[in-house]
């Protein structure tokens, strides 16, 4: 490449590169702040109800007990137990989230007493027949995406940042997600999901934010709408309890076997 050509390219594209870099920095700053404000919850238990609706509005429910714990140097540990539908009662799902690399997941099948390590490669699959994929429900570590700040927007009378994020894991079912984060408390208010063909597949809305433990905001309801199959799934989080004094031992294979 001739020197002239390089000079030409630098002259014309450097400002654009700088600008793009600013957007990346700003996107990362916003998401790091979202994460910082959400961290330090130590541990919690919560009851989750999933309400699955089909295109005709018929609904069916699932109930899940969930507990989660932060770790010092790695991602969160989460244990889920299914209460209904009754044929899967006592089924447990143990997840170790990692800042870097894929999550580790084990499924406990109570009828066989069998613990099965499951491939986190399958993260794009639907969770319990709902419109949530496994990856939508797993802990959202900052290091799992790259970011780009798009613009500010006023939604429901509140100021928001709009940030686009790109999953770094090639097994993700998405090319990108567009997130609305409120400027006041840095909380997710809306996320749009674009599938591998970059088609707008789903939208997730967060409702009913409440503060726990004097500092942790949690949405008590979320609705995921699938624009392709017209189905939707509503999550209702009840009975949040923080700082339960959980230990590492509450999140191992022996704990998974005694979940019911």
């Amino acid at each position: 490449m001739s020197n002239n050509l390089i000079a030409f390219l630098v002259f014309f594209f450097f400002p654009a590169l700088l600008l793009a870099n600013d957007e990346v920095q700003e996107g990362l700053r916003i998401m790091t702040e979202v994460d910082r404000r959400d961290n330090g919850w130590v541990d919690y238990t919560v009851d989750l109800t999933m309400i699955l609706s089909n295109a005709r509005g018929e609904t069916t429910e699932r109930e899940i007990q969930m507990k989660s714990k932060e770790t010092e140097e790695d991602g969160d540990r989460t244990l889920m137990v299914f209460d209904t539908p009754p044929d899967v009662r006592g089924t447990g799902l143990l997840t170790y989230t990692h800042f870097i690399g894929e999550d580790d997941q084990w499924l406990y099948l109570p009828a066989l007493k069998r613990i099965k390590r499951i491939a986190s490669k399958n993260k794009s699959g639907p969770f319990m027949g709902s419109e949530f994929a496994y990856e939508d429900l797993s802990s959202q570590e900052v290091s799992k995406y790259s970011y780009r700040y798009l613009k500010d927007e006023i939604m429901h009378g509140e100021e928001h940042f709009i940030v686009e994020r790109y999953p770094l894991d090639q097994n993700s079912g998405y090319t990108r997600q567009v997130a609305w984060v409120d400027k006041e408390h840095y909380r997710f208010q809306k996320i749009q999901f674009f599938d591998r063909k970059n088609k707008h597949l789903k939208t997730l809305d967060f409702y009913d934010y409440r503060m726990y433990d004097n500092r942790i905001w949690r949405a008590n309801s979320m609705i995921m709408e699938n624009h392709v199959n017209k189905k939707s799934t509503r999550l209702v989080w009840n009975n949040y309890q923080f700082n339960r004094g959980m230990r590492e031992q509450d999140f191992n294979k022996n704990a998974l076997k005694r979940v019911r």
Binding site: A119, K121, N122, S124, G125, P126, G173
Partner: peptide
């Protein structure tokens, strides 16, 4: 070996 979302459906 698992094929996730095979045949363009939500099936595995």
């Amino acid at each position: 070996k698992t094929f996730v979302g095979v045949f363009n459906t939500r099936a595995d």
